[in-house]
Every structure is written in structure tokens, then in C-alpha cells.
């Protein structure tokens, strides 16, 4: 990176490199190779988007969060409630879900971002826990623990119905993920994204430099929340179902594990960690429906011991590695 030409250096970040096409080629190939796995595939794609939202908040923004499910669930319930009350068109539902979650992110961010470290962690956790209790309790609206019944999701573009085999759901999720990813990639490579990394590394210094730290973090947090909301809506629309577990701690915790597995703050971590975790989960629970968590746990222990920084971190240690942590 040349210090003499900062504008050129920033512009160079936006340039596409060929390995960046791999995830998309793999996703398209998977559509044709595994027709029986498209329901799972759609959930993986939605979870990758969810992983990206965590990567933006935590990996780039340095906001320690254990409550991202608050936004995932808000998006899921927004899309779900719309579909259950006659507004079943998926695309407006998706946008409404993103906006609702982003609004909640901005609102809760006002409180959460004034804290740091462990206190921040607890605050994010509490936001999600409060919402989950509310969803549990407001059973006349949400269906409570039984979940939202009678969702009637319309056809994508008015043409393609969500069927039993998940083909529509898969392609729909893929397109949405791609569009959101383009936005996120442009964002993290922009001066705004660079300033987020600066704040993560040294917030005091960024303040001294005159950067509006709180405002920029709030914007990043709201955008991340919106992405989580869209991901939740994808989940809800493709399964035709929402339950309070979409706001649960597992939903917040597991995605963090998946992202750590892939590599955090690397933009592509979610593309590696999420499919790896979810496919392993699927295969292992097929082989051993009772004790599959053991094997997941063992894998994670080995991962943390031998490959800190996730798989992308491992790859970056090779001399030819190109996926640096930014």
C-alpha cells in the first residue's frame, strides 16, 4: 500500500480479484448438484447474510454483540406478520423487515454504543432477551411459543412460488445475498469503512483526529441490524414460519461461532464459516441424531487451538495468502 497515493490505495481496494467469484460459482453449482438440499441451502445463504451483519458490527465496527438475534428476529417477525395479515408479497416484506430492524438497531444503538466491553455485551444480550420474552408473551399477535401460524407468503416477482423443494427460496436468497454483499463490500472499502476499522483499533485516536466516532458507529450498527433483519425475513419467507427461537440466544451465539470459524473482519469469513458449520451440523446429526453436538464441539476446540483467526486466518499465514485481516 502506498502512503504517497492514499486515494489510489482506497480505489484499489474496490478492485475485484478472481477468488472473489468462487463463492458465487460454488453457490450456483450447488443449485444443480444438490437438488435435495436446497431448503438447507436457502437457510445457509440467509445465514451468510446474517454472518455478514455480525462481521460489519463486530469485525469492522468493533461493537461487541451477543444479541444480533434481536434484529434477525425483528426482521423475521416483520415479514411473518405482514404475510400473516394479507401482505404476502416477499420483496416489500423484505424491505420492510430491513427497515424495521435498522430502526430498532439505531434506537437500541443509542444506548448500547455508549457502553463498551462486557457492559456492551450484556446490553446487546438484554435487548434480544427482552424482545424474546415479548414475543413469547404477546401470543395473540405472535402465536407465542407455538410460532406464527398461517403465514401466506406470495410468489417472488409474482411468478415463482416457494415450493416444497426450496428452489425458489434458494435462488431468491442467493440474489438478495448478492445485492446485500455488493453494498457491504462497497461500504467496508469506502472511507467510511476505513474509519470504522480505525475506530476499532483505536477509538481515542480517531476522536482526536476529529472523526465522529459515536455517529459512525451508530450508522454501522443500524446498517448491520438492517442486514440481520433482511436475513431474518429471508428465513421467515422461505420456511413460511416464525417462532420466538428466531430471537433466542442460540441464534446470536451460533452465528458468532460460525463467523469465528471462517475468520472475522475479513469480509469472506461468513462465506466459509457458515456453510462449513451448517453442513457439518446437518451431516453429523444425520449420522448421530443424539450426540452430534459432541463432534461440533470437538471441531471448534481444535479450531480455536490450532487456527486462531479462523480458516481465512490460517490461509493468510501461507506466504501466498491474500486474504489479510483488514
Amino acid at each position: 500500500m502506498s502512503a504517497a497515493d492514499p486515494v489510489g490505495a482506497l480505489a484499489a481496494r474496490h478492485r475485484w480479484r478472481w477468488p472473489e467469484a468462487l463463492p458465487w460459482l460454488a453457490a450456483i453449482a450447488a443449485f444443480f448438484l444438490f437438488p435435495g438440499y436446497l431448503a438447507l441451502g436457502a437457510q445457509i445463504l440467509a445465514s451468510i447474510l446474517y454472518g455478514l451483519s455480525i462481521d460489519l458490527a463486530l469485525g469492522y465496527g468493533g461493537i461487541v454483540t451477543l444479541g444480533q438475534a434481536a434484529f434477525f428476529g425483528t426482521g423475521a417477525y416483520t415479514a411473518g406478520l405482514l404475510a400473516a395479515h394479507g401482505f404476502g408479497a416477499p420483496e416489500p416484506g423484505l424491505i420492510a423487515a430491513g427497515l424495521a430492524a435498522a430502526a430498532l438497531g439505531a434506537l437500541s444503538g443509542l444506548a448500547v454504543l455508549r457502553l463498551s466491553g462486557l457492559a456492551q455485551l450484556m446490553a446487546t444480550l438484554m435487548v434480544a432477551a427482552m424482545l424474546q420474552s415479548a414475543a413469547d408473551k404477546a401470543s395473540t399477535i405472535t402465536g407465542g411459543a407455538d410460532g406464527l401460524q398461517n403465514m401466506a407468503v406470495g410468489k417472488v416477482l409474482g411468478l415463482f412460488a416457494f415450493g416444497l423443494y426450496g428452489r425458489t427460496a434458494y435462488l431468491y436468497a442467493l440474489v438478495v445475498l448478492f445485492v446485500c454483499f455488493l453494498g457491504m463490500r462497497a461500504l467496508v472499502h469506502s472511507p467510511f469503512g476505513r474509519s470504522l476499522v480505525g475506530m476499532r483499533e483505536n477509538a481515542a485516536r480517531m476522536t482526536a483526529l476529529g472523526a465522529p466516532v459515536f455517529a459512525r458507529r451508530l450508522i454501522a450498527y443500524a446498517i448491520a441490524a438492517g442486514m440481520a433483519g433482511v436475513s431474518g425475513a429471508l428465513y421467515a419467507q422461505s420456511t413460511g414460519f416464525v417462532a420466538p427461537d428466531s430471537l433466542g440466544f442460540d441464534r446470536s451465539g451460533n452465528i458468532l461461532v460460525m463467523l469465528l470459524l471462517g475468520g472475522i473482519g475479513r469480509l469472506y469469513g461468513a462465506f466459509i464459516g457458515v456453510p462449513l458449520f451448517m453442513v457439518a451440523q446437518d451431516r453429523l446429526s444425520d449420522l448421530d441424531p443424539a450426540y452430534w453436538y459432541f463432534w461440533i464441539g470437538l471441531g471448534l476446540v481444535l479450531m480455536v487451538r490450532f487456527a486462531r483467526g479462523g480458516l481465512l486466518g490460517l490461509a493468510a499465514r501461507w506466504p501466498a495468502g491474500r486474504m489479510r485481516r483488514e
Binding site: Y37, L40, G147, F241, D245, P289
Partner: peptide
């Protein structure tokens, strides 16, 4: 063919049913 719904997790149960039918 056995599948684990992991408890009260309706979305998981629904996906498992879908997979049992389609796969």
C-alpha cells in the same frame, strides 16, 4: 430415518420434515 429437532424449535422441525420428504 431419525432426525433431531433439538427441542422446541419449530423452524428446525419444519426444515427436517421438508428434507425427509424431498431427500
Amino acid at each position: 430415518i431419525r432426525r433431531d429437532d433439538t427441542g422446541i424449535a419449530p423452524a428446525t422441525a419444519k426444515r427436517l420434515a421438508q428434507e425427509l420428504v424431498t431427500r
